[in-house]
Design a protein around this nucleic acid. Structure first.
Length: 578
RNA sequence: CGGGGUGUACCUCAACCUGGUAGAGGGCCGGCUUUGGGUGCCGGCUGUUGCAGGUUCAAAUCCUGCCACCCCGACCA
């Protein structure tokens, strides 16, 4: 492809509404344009990247035994009504009506639709297992789209669904998909971790996320520095901490202390000359209609997802200042578990504290010498956030906290959907049994952004070869006949070798072309100009080389072979990454 | 949905506070120049100042309402 004929509108300046690196570079490089909040058009370069990612995904999934289908995006309401998700999904579901007033929605995910297909077509244990996937546009009316392609309301997703005769078989299907996902993420050149995760609204019994590790990621994950343990902070566990404080038997009775104006833990700690880990931090939550106090060590934070799970509710919210003051009878900052009249949940590592300090439920007052279990009773559970340096629950090595982008998520659904939708088969004995299901998602368009978040420098994108929009950027400098002829020869011979070449034949100054080449980020660049041609050579420079002057002179006679060899080496390099 | 912010040319922004004919740079078009990391000079095109009301002789500017977008939080591929 020749740049002079292509639509590759690069921008010198970043549009003001883009903040994430990938968003800025996708706009500046001419890959996408914004149409509305969380709605994007893909330009030619963007489409090429999408297609390359899709090709890798299709290849690995078909190797894993999955078959591609294409389900509609426009869906009658009846399917989601059947499983209750018509109500459950809430405002995230994009609903619409047809001319007759019939209720429809745009598909945010397709468990119901695929299950309906399978229950109609699969009748016998002989028909199982099945694994079906599609690559399709999904619609979710996100409360807050952000970061360009990182979180869209319309986005491309690969979703796969497995159907098995029983749990053991479903688990095997799940493991096959997990392995396929690892190969996909390896081939795409990601630095990623597979982490245990909460199943969330999709439901089901187990799940793992594929988290691409980047500083700008919105998810927090805890990963062991020694073994394979890794988990989303929402579910991460730790080995119990050693007890802090003296022998419980030696702790005197609680004693009030005047702490005027010192509500915050750090303030009181400094005022009382103690460290925050001597404190029991007490937060009042509303779970359903019930008030609950969550108690963690002063240097720890409550994890609301874990708290909700410990309480057996779907979510909790922090009580308002007024609610807290009504419940404790004291100003905000002086709540404590001793004498608290509602349910109390204490974090395991707070329960082992002895001789602790807590709020006294009296304004400007704290209690010293508080002893969990002796002075108040509470249910113990792991309800705090894991922090850097906590110990791995499996091997007790230190955990480290990373930030990540959730790029893939796999679920063991069990019979969550199939039982509601009566998707059954006849077993060998002629008895009806419920199909066991798994589902597997990859955010294809999100991956485009994730790649850039992980592969860029101050000059632009650095695509891994496997998904670069073109494999080679041929930069033509000047328009002397010998330059034009050499460019044409390379174009012909390289394309004959099956290489995707983007040729910058625009009438632009060299600086403009080099800047654009760095911005667009094609992994290998060949420069054809009078200067090198005089020496009978062209210049070769990988995008990964930061030094602008460092280019390799390659004699014309070897140019094609050298380029092919370099691309081969790059491909092997990127598939080893991650 | 809570909090914060922004809407002026294709892009980045100024002018708004203190009302008086809407500007710069980049881009784009033309000319000359330059030709290995966004060349320099000259000329040119581009606007219902987000929308609707209101106040005023006069509104980008002040007031009211609405809309859109971005960022931070609660949710998710």
């Amino acid at each position: 492809m020749r740049s002079s004929r292509a639509l590759i509108p690069t921008l010198k300046e970043a549009p003001a509404d883009a903040t994430s690196v990938s968003h800025v570079l996708l706009l500046r490089g001419g890959f996408v344009r914004r149409v509305g909040a969380g709605i994007y058009s893909f330009l030619p370069l963007g489409v090429r990247v999408l297609k390359k990612i899709e090709a890798v995904v299709r290849d690995e999934l078909s190797k894993a035994g999955a078959q591609e289908v294409l389900l509609p995006a426009l869906l009658p309401a009846e399917y989601f009504k059947e499983t209750g998700r018509w109500e459950l999904y809430g405002d995230t579901l994009l609903r619409l009506k047809d001319r007759k007033g019939g209720e429809y929605h745009l598909g945010p995910t397709h468990e119901e639709i695929i299950t309906d297909l399978v229950r109609r077509e699969v009748k016998s244990y002989r028909d199982l297992p099945k694994n079906l996937f599609q690559i399709q546009t999904k619609f979710r009316d996100e409360p807050r789209p952000r970061g360009g392609l990182l979180r869209c309301r319309e986005f491309s997703m690969k979703d796969a669904y497995s159907f098995d005769v029983d749990e053991a078989s479903a688990k095997a299907s799940y493991e096959v998909m997990r392995a396929a996902y690892c190969r996909i993420f390896d081939r795409l050149g990601f630095d990623y971790r597979v982490v245990s995760a909460d199943s969330g609204a999709i439901g089901g019994s187990g799940s793992a996320e594929f988290q691409v590790l980047v500083q700008s990621g919105e998810d927090l994950i805890a990963a062991c520095t020694n073994c394979a343990y890794a988990a989303n902070l929402e579910v991460a566990k730790t080995h119990a901490l050693p007890r802090i404080g003296p022998d419980p038997a030696s702790v005197p009775a609680p004693d009030r202390v005047h702490t005027p104006g010192h509500g915050a833990i750090s303030d009181v700690a400094a005022f009382l000359k103690r460290t925050p880990d001597n404190f029991l931090k007490s937060l009042v939550y509303v779970a359903g209609k019930e008030l609950v106090m969550a108690v963690v060590r002063g240097d720890h934070d409550v994890n609301e997802v874990k708290l909700a799970r410990a309480l057996g509710v779907s979510d909790v919210r922090l009580a308002s200042g007024a609610e807290v003051e009504k419940a404790t009878g004291a100003a905000l900052g002086f709540a404590g578990p001793v004498g608290f009249k509602h349910r109390i949940v204490i974090d395991r590592d707070a329960a082992s504290l002895t001789d602790a300090v807590t709020g006294a439920n009296v304004t400007d007052t704290h209690l010293l010498h508080v002893q969990p279990g002796r002075d108040f009773s509470a249910e113990a559970a792991e309800i705090r956030n894991v922090v850097d340096g906590d110990l791995c629950p499996d091997c007790q090595s230190p955990l480290k906290i990373y930030r990540g982008i959730e790029a893939g998520h796999i679920f063991l659904l069990g019979t969550h959907y199939t039982s509601k939708m009566k998707a059954t088969y006849l077993d060998e004995k002629g008895e009806h049994r419920t199909i066991v299901m798994g589902c597997y998602g990859i955010g294809i368009s999100r991956l485009v952004a994730a790649v850039i978040e992980q592969h860029h420098d101050q000059n632009g994108i650095r695509w891994p070869l496997a998904i670069a929009p073109y494999q080679l950027h041929l930069v033509q400098l000047g328009a002397e006949p010998e330059v034009v002829a050499e460019v044409a020869r390379l174009e012909r011979e390289l394309e004959a070798r099956g290489i995707d070449v983007l040729i910058d034949d625009r009438e632009e100054r060299p600086g403009v072309k080099f800047k654009d080449a760095d911005l667009i980020g094609i992994p290998l660049r060949v420069t054809v100009g009078a200067k090198a041609l005089k020496a009978g050579a062209v210049e070769l420079k990988p995008r990964s080389e930061a030094d602008p002057k460092k280019a390799e002179l390659v004699p014309l006679a070897n140019a094609v072979e050298t380029i092919v060899a370099r691309l081969q080496a790059l491909l092997e390099g990127s598939s080893k990454a991650g």
